[in-house]
Design a protein around this nucleic acid. Structure first.
Lengths: 223, 223
DNA sequence: AAATTTCGTCATAATTTTGTCACAATAATT
DNA sequence: AATTATTGTGACAAAATTATGACGAAATTT
């Protein structure tokens, strides 16, 4: 079963570990960050389904982090606030926070809020098996069959294909692809994408031309 | 068939006998202790697979007992708490409690929790005999034959393989493996997993390449 | 207490992935 | 048709990741 990925951003280690443990017991896959910079880094490199974010943190506070995240993503965010001060909440909803939990909170409450938010945002943990012509994708196994043959896709190739599949029939610019697959702090050339596309098409065999070139823009995966 | 041994530590005799009865009906072998000192004594002399531990007990309370146990063992522990007070839980996870049941509880709930925890910690009672090519696994005897030859797997190797078998055809990240096999609070390097995989593959002989490397992620046991 | 086994880390080797470049091919524009 | 812009592709070296053997510490057994 595919696990839901939750990023916990909390500088206080003890609390972070505690939250992690509870989330783990609930079957979630947990990523940890002890500060904002680390959080953004993880967020860019991992597929995160929900973020639990402490407001009060050294260097980069919760609002700044969420503002950064919101530049590229609509991932659900739950904020942990120390006080129940209303102005905190107001400020938070402004920068796109989805829900709040006020410290001190019970873990039960936090779990309930997380589950509710996941439900609200339709995040599901399905071990999907998809089929496109002779192309079979098993996300749980992270395995792809082409014509029944097990085909090894490199991480970049796999992530790229997943991005295409998630956004089938949509023209995706090289920049979009770079942001999502490489992370927004990637500095290389636009045309790196072309090379990965080349390799993808080759490995996908006859299904390779599901990846259509959208001249002047980027590519599109057709279903 | 090998029976799972459960130690029930509860000073109130009536409740203890009740729990014992239900556990017995579920096919478990039950050891009883009415106080902490007795519990530790039994724990040292018997092979115990799981402990059900009441918090409130005269002389030595549940936390003290679990702290003692944790000095030498990672056996799963379920705590019975009188109140649902969260601070109880916080304290408990600190001393290594795996799960909680709040009084009053239904026996059905307790049984469910126990079974879930046993599953989570890979304690199995079934005298299952599995076969993967020339690899035979007898979980009851905790024995593995490779090509008919009895092969000794170290605890880590065995646990790791069991985790793989339970999650066959699933890509498992190093972190997931660490969490399950090493325990949640393990602090070492990710790549410790690699070393165990190396040893596993070697001992598994020709079946060794059932453990596939999933680049950028971890490993997958293929059936 | 001694012997044995297990375990984690490290260094190094082997392998795979990845980005870039140069040039070819193709499409769009003049 | 020629020119220009954009994309396709093979080759290659650097970078990243994984495999593996060795070693000593820790744990377990004798």
């Amino acid at each position: 079963m595919y696990q839901i990925n939750i990023l916990v951003v909390e500088d206080e280690e003890k609390l972070r570990k505690l939250i992690k443990k509870y989330l783990f017991l609930e079957g979630f896959h947990v990523h940890e960050a002890s500060n904002g910079v680390e959080a953004l880094k993880i967020f860019d490199t991992e597929t995160i389904d929900l973020v639990v974010l402490d407001v009060m943190m050294p260097f980069k506070n919760g609002y700044e982090v969420s503002k950064e995240i919101r530049k590229t993503s609509q991932v659900p965010i739950i904020m942990l606030t120390a006080r129940s001060a209303e102005d905190d909440k107001l400020q938070g909803f402004d920068v796109g926070i989805d829900d709040y939990v006020t410290k001190p909170f019970s873990t039960r409450e936090l779990m309930a809020r997380i589950k509710a938010l996941l439900k609200r945002t339709n995040v599901t943990s399905t071990n999907e098996k998809m089929q496109f012509g002779v192309l079979s994708i098993d996300t749980g196994a992270r395995r792809i069959l082409v014509d029944g043959e097990d085909m090894t896709f490199s991480p970049k190739e796999y992530d790229c294909l997943m991005y295409f599949v998630d956004n089938a029939n949509q023209a995706l610019s090289r920049e979009q692809i770079l942001n999502r697959v490489w992370g927004f702090d990637y500095f290389g050339d636009d045309r790196t994408v072309d090379t990965v596309i080349k390799r993808l098409r080759k490995k996908m065999g006859v299904e390779g031309d599901r990846i259509q070139t959208v001249r002047g823009v980027g590519y599109r995966f057709e279903v």
